[in-house]
């Protein structure tokens, strides 16, 4: 199955790094969004997106709110969501898991970590 990623981050640098990493590990299809609301818009217009990688701290709509919005919509609730964030404390991780993220990566990450998490999510 062809993978099309939605990369959500308000930092242009981080979006670029995630996209470059995806290319390095063999995924070339992607769409970018600068916050949760933009991501929802992209999901509504691009039905080919089948994997979401999102930051947590973003203006307008956070990654956590985005996750909840995706999980509460019948069309998108099954999408794999990988949270990539600076927030590494247990309370945050638990909160993200309760919102039903598929997995959690803390910044700064290596390409190998991102690949491992994507592989793990897809194998499940």
């Amino acid at each position: 199955m062809e993978r099309k990623f939605l990369v959500v981050d308000d930092s242009v640098t981080m979006r670029r790094i995630v996209v470059n990493t995806l290319k390095t590990i063999g995924y070339s299809e992607y769409v970018e969004a600068e916050d949760g609301k933009d991501a929802i818009d992209k999901l509504n217009t691009d039905m080919g997106i089948n994997f979401v990688i999102t930051d947590w701290n973003m203006p307008v709509m956070s990654g956590l709110e985005l996750t909840k919005a995706i999980r509460s919509d019948d069309r998108t609730k099954g999408l794999p969501i990988l949270m990539v964030t600076t927030r590494g404390i247990k309370e945050d991780i638990v909160q993200a898991l309760q919102a039903k993220v598929s997995n959690y990566v803390v910044k700064p990450f290596t390409p190998q970590i991102l690949k491992d998490k994507i592989d793990l999510i897809l194998s499940n």
Partner: peptide, 16 residues
């Protein structure tokens, strides 16, 4: 270059 790319994530962290 992979290592440099990883180190550039510091920008997001300092921005926060």
């Amino acid at each position: 270059t992979d290592q440099i790319t990883m180190s550039l994530q510091v920008q997001d962290i300092t921005a926060q």
